[in-house]
């Protein structure tokens, strides 16, 4: 039976692993029945207003960067940066969404913080005025975008949520990250 030795051990290990996994999934199922489904959001400020992006779309927060301007691109594209060898565009999200009362960004001087966000097809560093907290909000507390927003703005907002008395717009990244110049 010496030959069968390792095989039996393997089976025992495998069984233990299966049991452990099963126990874990049972425990999780128990929690889920009482927990409310939540969405993680990273808050950020543009001018006077607060916005958010889903945390699952955030790749990293980027502070020290040197933007290379690219000629003849839409005004909301500030240029490109080198993120560890990968070239990523820099998007002025306030200009893109037409957020009012926003001072012009001077990239040569003090650099505002940027959040590198990504969807399935593309990524960009969005420049914001201030980075806020990460919050978990119940999924059903997210409301449709305000009806008072004008059409050009509403398409960039996926929904809104009230946090501590502030109305926060959740950015529609599918729209905001539409590839530039694909049809030209």
């Amino acid at each position: 039976m010496t030959e069968a030795g390792p095989t039996t051990r393997f089976h025992a290990d495998q069984d233990r692993a299966i049991l452990r996994r099963r126990a874990e999934s049972l425990a999780q199922a128990g929690e889920e029945t009482i927990a409310i489904e939540t969405v993680g959001l990273l808050l950020f400020r543009l001018g006077e207003e607060w916005y958010a992006v889903p945390i699952e779309r955030v790749r990293e927060i980027y502070n020290e960067y040197a933007v290379t301007r690219v000629p003849r691109v839409p005004d909301f594209v500030l240029g490109v940066v080198n993120v560890r060898g990968e070239i990523v565009s820099v998007t002025d999200i306030a200009t893109l969404m037409r957020v009012p009362s926003r001072t012009e960004i001077d990239l040569s001087d003090e650099r505002p913080p940027a959040i590198i966000v990504a969807n399935d097809t593309c990524s960009s560093a969005i420049v914001v005025d201030e980075i806020g907290d990460i919050v978990d909000v119940p999924r059903d507390s997210i409301e449709p975008p305000l009806s008072t927003l004008d059409k050009s703005q509403v398409e960039y907002i996926a929904g809104s949520v009230f946090i501590e008395g502030r109305l926060i717009g959740i950015v529609n990244l599918e729209k905001a990250l539409e590839p530039v110049g694909e049809n030209t």
Binding site: V70, R72, V73, V80, E86, I87, V88
Partner: peptide, 18 residues
């Protein structure tokens, strides 16, 4: 290098180099 996944096609620019 390409201009990244966001900028698909930019007039006059073929790509970038580091």
């Amino acid at each position: 290098k390409t201009l990244g996944s966001h900028l698909k096609r930019v007039d006059n620019v073929a790509g970038v180099t580091i």
